[in-house]
Design a protein around this nucleic acid. Sequence first.
DNA 1: CTTTTAAGTCAATTGTCTTGACTAATTTGT
DNA 2: ACAAATTAGTCAAGACAATTGACTTAAAAG
Lengths: 400, 400
Amino acid sequence: MNDIRPIRATSGTNHEGTSAHNRRVIIDALRLNGALSRADLARATRLTKQTVSNIMEELENGGLVTSRETVRRGRGQPSTPYGLVPEGAFAIGLQIDRHITRAIAVDLVGNVLIRKEANLPAGGPATGTPVVLRLVQDVRSELKQRVAQAEKRLVGLGAAMPGPFGIDQNDVDNPWMMGPWQRFPLLETLSAGTGLNVTLQNDAAACATAERMVGAAHGLDHAVCLYVGYGIGAGLILGGELYSGAHGNAGEIGMALLTAGGRLTQLEHRASLASLYDHLGVDPMAPDIYSLINDRAAADDPDILAWIERAAIDLRWSVQLIETIFDPQTVILCGGAPAALALRLIAAMQPLLPSNADRPDRLLPRLQLGMTDPWAVARGAAAEPIGHAFDPRFSAILKS
Amino acid sequence: MNDIRPIRATSGTNHEGTSAHNRRVIIDALRLNGALSRADLARATRLTKQTVSNIMEELENGGLVTSRETVRRGRGQPSTPYGLVPEGAFAIGLQIDRHITRAIAVDLVGNVLIRKEANLPAGGPATGTPVVLRLVQDVRSELKQRVAQAEKRLVGLGAAMPGPFGIDQNDVDNPWMMGPWQRFPLLETLSAGTGLNVTLQNDAAACATAERMVGAAHGLDHAVCLYVGYGIGAGLILGGELYSGAHGNAGEIGMALLTAGGRLTQLEHRASLASLYDHLGVDPMAPDIYSLINDRAAADDPDILAWIERAAIDLRWSVQLIETIFDPQTVILCGGAPAALALRLIAAMQPLLPSNADRPDRLLPRLQLGMTDPWAVARGAAAEPIGHAFDPRFSAILKS
DNA sequence: CTTTTAAGTCAATTGTCTTGACTAATTTGT
DNA sequence: ACAAATTAGTCAAGACAATTGACTTAAAAG
């Protein structure tokens, strides 16, 4: 008898894989470039005019694209651009944070149609899941009511929450963590409770997805989003795809150790909204905390400025680290930090530390401001199922 | 007139892309699993028996695989395994380091057939390239002489040298850098000088490629190789592929900053062979430096132990950082450090710092010893062209 | 008003994988 | 000993999706 070792191999592909890939490539090109003619698409994708024509006809019949007005571009027959139909697909995005949960509905091009939020009661998933499920259901009903076709074209539910996942933390009392939620089989629960395709990622990754779809990372293949929220994390866009690591915990930079005051500390303890709340002595549960911080930052409150000064030191270090390790095209500061605060943080971080990112051929700034929107995470979470349905990526080519 | 903006799009694919992908998938499966029967391959790749049979026939005619002895595995017709023919492809690997250059010839399964090295004269590329080209030519001639078919089946030349690339460094006197070489158009020069397909990567990346092909990262999709050589770097295997960043400088962890003795220093200045040579006051140019260090380490020389104690602190931090940021399946310590030294380093690094890698479901050790072979970088460099020719990856599917 | 250029279609062809029926070789069970 | 079951592998026809080359349409340039 021989050993029955498992055989490791990549999946092969076939006509369907080819076809699916080409369809995604076209949709992706339209999303990235706006409306394009068939001839443009043929050139850009290196497919033949005929192939593109066939695919476009199918997509048009399927209601995913429509023709726009013809444009004359010099000699030759005028071209007919085709653009994505926003109502071609919908997705629901869900953010679960420490004290609050938010759900939104978006369409194929990333428009936010519905936003709803609810406070999360203490007690973790046991008391929280009903709230979350009800919120999702509310968004879904309203979407159905608003757009007749929406339910049929709902491609999934994207959920985001702070990581890390799957780690045994004995942190019951650690306010920096969301242990009970992280240990809870959220994906399965949401999937069973809604019947939708559910994806789960951490909040920094979701934010990066949002930046890539409609923000500062649009069209970039190598970008890192430094997410400053209640915690701090990095959303990684590497080689054109979101990178999550072996267990979904890549980018948890908040747990990186730096020396401060002579001892090793987690970055998260120095540069995060949690540390700011702590510094200010305000209650993170306060309902209007976002605008409160924004106003105080806008008024250059000295307590806030002091925190910014200190946090900027560590964030400057983080940016240098990210540039050194990932070699991205740009670093984007984004997340749940209010705009006034984020702007001041970026200003205080200048000048950045020298790094490999100081290239003579730079096109983009080393550090940019991204979305500073409490809804950014939910938007990114919603983008995931749509991206998954339409992004051309390696895994999409393989045989099902 | 309309604007002529460039259109961004992924390339589409066609029948040839499909076919090329399936061929690569099969070769990759054989490389990963050893000899497999057609039926095994069909199951593993999810292709049909017929498709696999057709491809195998072609590969056999092309001299890339041969049948082995039939094996009986219980009921049914015995299966005929097919294995890769080592002589199916060859590649040359080239390492350019501070004081030395090494070239090797490898075959399809990674056997090293020829090794040659030469001292690099001072003076950078101007005096160095002739030496390098002659070395490559020597290896190539000997390979041709040794294996008749080799020249026809030579898939390329993989070169590796310390990074970073494309950075303007005013470091003429900085012994940690190889500025002149890094600014030199090495790829073009080698390509013109040999007529081969040339790839260039940094030494840590090459080492990671070697580990993936024939070492501790074999079969892993998420692994980081901590390369301790004259400098220190990280070779990143992310999502099954080597990750190089936007400009080929990803993983240059040696430039990460840490606080030591109250001020920020580059990791490279504390944990690298350069720092060891400095600590010991030995000349890095000494021809037998490798065995010298190995012997002193093996004899537990107190000076070396002192350096190990100090370097282990920073390396422990690096491993925690890598685990936090990349979430890999394992971290591999590899590179030009002699075995006796590497083993003691790993021992001194225990216990590792707590991190997200402390998972209840771990299968692999957090930190492993990889290749400690002065030839590892050249091996990895040589693996690149072969991998490029036969690895199934996204880019390989797209239309040429 | 003819020529050139470009967009886009039509119909036939090609390349590659799939399907279903088949042969071959072995073990298991009676 | 022999039939049934099981697995490896082949054959030939078919299906699918992209390609090819000739064609139509529509505009600008000379």
